[in-house]
């Protein structure tokens, strides 16, 4: 009897922890709506705003979940997005074709991602080490590209060229297609299960015959597609690109994934929806800070405390002795 009670209590606790990030997002949404009514905020414009501000991070971070599931991480995603966008913009200016720009953004981002993972395989290094090197390399490459383009300190796509696709529905369609692909690969294909296994216990995974390097290359390729789409959406929203383009995206990806309840160590508890929930929560939190007219420094402190809170909850739930099923 007591055992049953204990098991039920544990199950309830597990369910609470599992849905805590989603609950957090719903809570933030509720607070935002209350503030919107009290402070006379333009709600339809705010929704459009939330989509515009979160879609790039959602797309890039959803792909990055594959990397995080392996227990690794890529610190160069922001720089990769910047370089992909710059080369994509140059491709548009050369061809005046939006499909060419899209393909260039995705192609360059995948190439950069694959370079990171292949270099790690060749030199037998942890992948995140090569991504640190890539971060420096890509930052320098961004400056070289801008200099070589010969148009001052920016590379621009004419605003009129992207005005037609700079709308919420187009962005949501891109997000839905990519998210659908990632969910299918992560939750319904062998790839996702293998990645979780590899991230949870690399030794066992190796002993059962899984090829860790191949899994890493697949994860980085999928993340590259997300980064490329993020680069395309960045150009759509703000077609003037500089060396600072996407400078905060790298960190936003990490924060969003963790904020969405993804375990830092990857493995079986990894969830593909973490990035969506995390990025939307972060954007909602920013909107709340703005509505409260909080000083940006104070806002950062509040975010840091919430971040610690979320990680603490996440860690406290993963300290059990039994492996998750």
């Amino acid at each position: 009897m007591e055992n049953e009670k204990k098991i039920r209590k544990e199950n309830v606790k597990a369910a609470v922890f599992r849905f805590a990030p989603l609950g957090g997002l719903i809570l933030l949404f509720g607070i935002f709506m209350a503030l919107a009514v009290i402070k006379d905020i333009n709600i339809p414009y705010s929704f459009k705003n939330i989509v515009n501000q979160s879609v790039v991070v959602v797309v890039a971070a959803t792909g990055a979940v594959f990397i995080y599931t392996l227990g690794s991480f890529d610190i160069s995603l922001g720089a990769s997005l910047c370089v992909s966008a710059l080369i994509g913009a140059m491709a548009y200016n050369a061809t005046k074709s939006l499909p060419v720009m899209l393909l260039t953004c995705v192609g360059v981002a995948v190439l950069i991602s694959l370079t990171s993972s292949v270099l790690a395989s060749v030199f037998n290094l942890p992948v995140f080490v090569t991504t640190i090197a890539m971060l420096s390399l890509l930052s320098a490459l961004a400056l070289v590209l801008i200099g070589a383009n010969g148009t001052g300190d920016v590379i621009q796509v004419p605003a009129a060229a992207v005005r037609g696709i700079n709308n919420v529905w187009f962005k949501l369609i891109i997000l839905a297609v990519y998210l659908g692909m990632c969910v299918f690969l992560f939750d319904f294909m062998k790839l996702g299960r293998r990645e979780k296994f590899q991230g949870g216990n690399p030794v066992c995974a190796k002993l059962t015959g899984l090829n860790g390097k191949r899994l890493a290359i697949a994860a980085f390729a999928i993340a590259g597609v997300g980064v490329g789409l993020g680069a395309f959406l960045t150009i759509t929203y703000a077609p003037t690109l500089s060396r600072n383009t996407a400078s905060s995206v790298g960190m936003d990806i990490i924060i969003s994934i963790v904020f969405g309840g993804m375990p830092v160590s990857g493995g079986a508890r990894s969830k593909i929806y973490s990035a969506v929930i995390g990025a939307l929560s972060m954007t909602m939190l920013n909107q709340i800070m703005l509505a409260l007219s909080l000083d940006s420094g104070v806002g950062q402190i509040v975010k840091a405390i919430i971040f610690l809170l979320v990680v603490s909850i996440s860690m406290s739930n993963s300290k059990g002795n039994i492996l998750p099923r």
Partner: peptide, 19 residues
């Protein structure tokens, strides 16, 4: 602090949303 054009666009959207 606005580092790039996208940050500027976001900030303007925030201002408009806040009337």
């Amino acid at each position: 602090e606005l580092a790039d054009a996208a940050a500027e666009a976001s900030a303007i959207d925030n201002f408009i949303a806040n009337n």
